[in-house]
Amino acid sequence: MAQVPATPKMRRFSLLTAARLFGPELLLRNSDLQASERAALALRAAKPAKAPENPVSVFLIPLVGPHHVGDWAAVCARLNATLRSFIAQTDTNWRVLICGQASPDLPDDPRITFVPFTTPVEGNDKWLKLCQLADTIPTLGIAQGYAMSFDADDLAHPTLVQEMHDRRSAGGYLMTQGYVYDVGNNRIALAQPASPAQPLCKPFWKLCGSCAALAFDLTDQPEAEIARIAESTQHEHRMFPYLAQLAGRPLTPLSGPEALYLLNHGENFGARRGRVSFKQRFAERFQITDAATLTQIRQDFALD
Rank of each mutant, 00 (worst) to 15 (best):
D71M: 07
F86V: 08
A73K: 15
T90Y: 11
L83R: 06
A74K: 07
P66N: 04
H68W: 06
G70Y: 05
L83W: 06
L60W: 00
I87G: 08
L60C: 02
R78K: 14
N80R: 15
N80K: 13
V75L: 08
D91G: 04
L63E: 07
N80P: 12
D91E: 09
A73W: 04
L79N: 07
A81T: 10
A88V: 11
R78C: 03
H67N: 01
P62Q: 13
N80F: 08
C76W: 00
R84I: 07
I87N: 06
R84F: 11
V69P: 01
Q89N: 10
G65Q: 03
D91N: 14
D91K: 02
G65S: 14
V75E: 09
G65T: 01
A77N: 08
T90A: 13
R78G: 02
Q89M: 12
D91F: 04
V69F: 01
H67I: 00
I61D: 07
G65C: 02
A77D: 10
L83T: 10
V64L: 08
V64G: 00
G65E: 04
Q89T: 08
R84E: 13
A81S: 07
A77P: 03
G70A: 06
D71K: 05
L83S: 08
F59L: 14
L60G: 05
H68Q: 15
V64H: 01
L83H: 10
C76F: 01
H68D: 12
C76V: 01
I61A: 06
L79D: 09
G70Q: 12
V69M: 02
I87S: 12
I87L: 15
G65R: 01
G65H: 02
C76E: 07
N80Q: 14
G70D: 14
H67P: 00
H68Y: 05
L60P: 03
I87M: 15
